[in-house]
Design a protein around this nucleic acid. Structure first.
Length: 377
DNA sequence: AAACGGACCAACCGCTCACAG
DNA sequence: ACTGTGAGCGGTTGGTCCGTT
């Protein structure tokens, strides 16, 4: 007998969110921020559990969400990060502003996995399917071969399409290449990540800090209100369709995401939280590795950097990464600190020698609950 | 036209972790 | 040290759409 979920226990609503529910949650969060998720549904007038509200906000309502198809750059980054991090979707998502872990996870399971398999790459190990045999081979021999030679040796026809070969070479470089020591391969197992749970100290507190004093993102809401008259089913269907074709024509509370680019850009500019969270999380990951002086992790990151350099110049210093150069840390990932975030970081650096972004809390905003008491739905 | 199966994705579930008391 | 609670994460499920037979 499994235990009942919180929703069952409290006889709360489950399933898809209605536009009205979305509107309530959106209005509430934009006005008051998130104090404690478990109290949000009550205060927002929703028959949902806090968990469900949190998920809805993170995966759908957050105004900084990017929608539509994953770009080639994003796709490459996901594959590279997955190779280094495994199924740590939240950490992967932290490097892709505007994307949620759920979105990336779904994309991976429904698309990328198959894509890699088609290319003869095991999506779990990121090695060529035949690499089980390859692993048994003398590592020294492996170190002496170029990736291309190895692919050829493994029976990958030299007539394989250039694109495919390039892809394989790129994504399997760290798997195939053996460094001089023969033990520098970046794999999930030897990354030796801290088992400590990594919270992306998300947008929430930052969002709260950026909420319009009037309590509304007027551009977003006015746009939404214009569209609220759309029949739910109709808009849902249309959106589903459009989502597949990567067009976000309207903005309303439907059960599919549909922020327009215009809205997204405006709101992202206002709030900036995903960049913030990305940087923090990146810092955390970096510091974890830095502190553990784990060469494999560093190698993994360099590997990612090198690939990114090859692909789209995301990183500046892939070949000569140095942990000691704090200023370079920020350039390792494309999402920079900005504004208040820099101030915050500098303070941190001053206060505690720059080494502890992991200690950032997801600061629950309105500790003064009177704010909530004044709120009537 | 109906049935079927696959793809996609939002949402749920159960677990772990952090933290306060 | 222990316990309860809330937050967050990753795996999984279930609903919907669409293409094929």
């Amino acid at each position: 007998m499994g235990r009942n979920s919180c929703c069952v226990k409290q006889k709360l609503r489950k399933g898809l969110w209605s536009p009205e529910e979305d509107e309530k949650l959106y209005n509430y969060i934009t006005r008051f921020g998130v104090g404690c998720w478990s109290s949000v549904p009550k205060l927002a007038g929703l028959q949902r559990c806090g968990k469900s509200c949190r998920l809805r906000w993170i995966n759908y309502l957050r105004p900084d969400l990017k929608r539509g198809m994953f770009s080639q750059e994003e796709e490459d980054l996901i594959i590279n990060l997955h190779e280094a991090l495994g199924n740590r979707w939240a950490q992967i998502a932290a490097q892709l502003p505007g994307r949620t872990d759920n979105e990336i996870k779904n994309f991976w399971n429904s698309s990328l996995k198959k894509k890699l398999l088609k290319q003869g790459v095991d999506p779990n190990t990121h090695k060529l399917i035949n690499d089980a045999q390859l692993a048994i081979k003398d590592e020294r021999e492996c170190a002496e071969l170029s990736p291309l030679q190895m692919l050829q040796q493994e029976g990958v026809p030299s007539s394989a399409s250039t694109a495919q070969l390039d892809h394989q070479q790129t994504y399997n470089l760290s798997s195939i290449l053996c460094s001089n020591g023969g033990k520098m391969e970046a794999s999930r197992e030897n990354l030796n990540f801290s088992s400590k749970q990594v919270y992306d100290p998300l947008f929430l507190s930052e969002f709260q800090a950026n909420v319009d004093p009037d309590g509304f993102h007027s551009s977003f809401l006015s746009h939404c209100h214009q569209n609220l008259s759309r029949p739910y089913d109709q808009s849902q269907r249309e959106n589903h369709h459009h989502h597949h074709h990567h067009i976000s024509p309207i903005c309303g509370f439907n059960s599919m995401p549909n922020l327009t680019n215009f809205d997204h850009q405006n709101l992202a500019a206002e709030t900036q939280f995903s960049h913030h969270s990305s940087s923090r999380t990146t810092k955390f990951v970096m510091n974890e590795a830095k502190e553990s002086s784990n060469a494999s992790f560093q190698q993994a990151m360099i590997h990612i950097n090198n690939n990114d350099n090859n692909n789209n110049n995301v990183v500046e210093n892939g070949g000569s990464f140095s942990w000691d150069d704090e200023s370079k840390l920020d350039s390792v990932f494309p999402f920079q600190f900005s504004g208040i975030q820099i101030e915050e970081r500098n303070q941190k650096l001053q206060n505690q020698n720059s080494d502890d972004f992991a200690t950032y809390q997801l600061t629950a905003l309105p500790q003064n609950m009177n704010v909530f008491n004044d709120h009537r739905i």
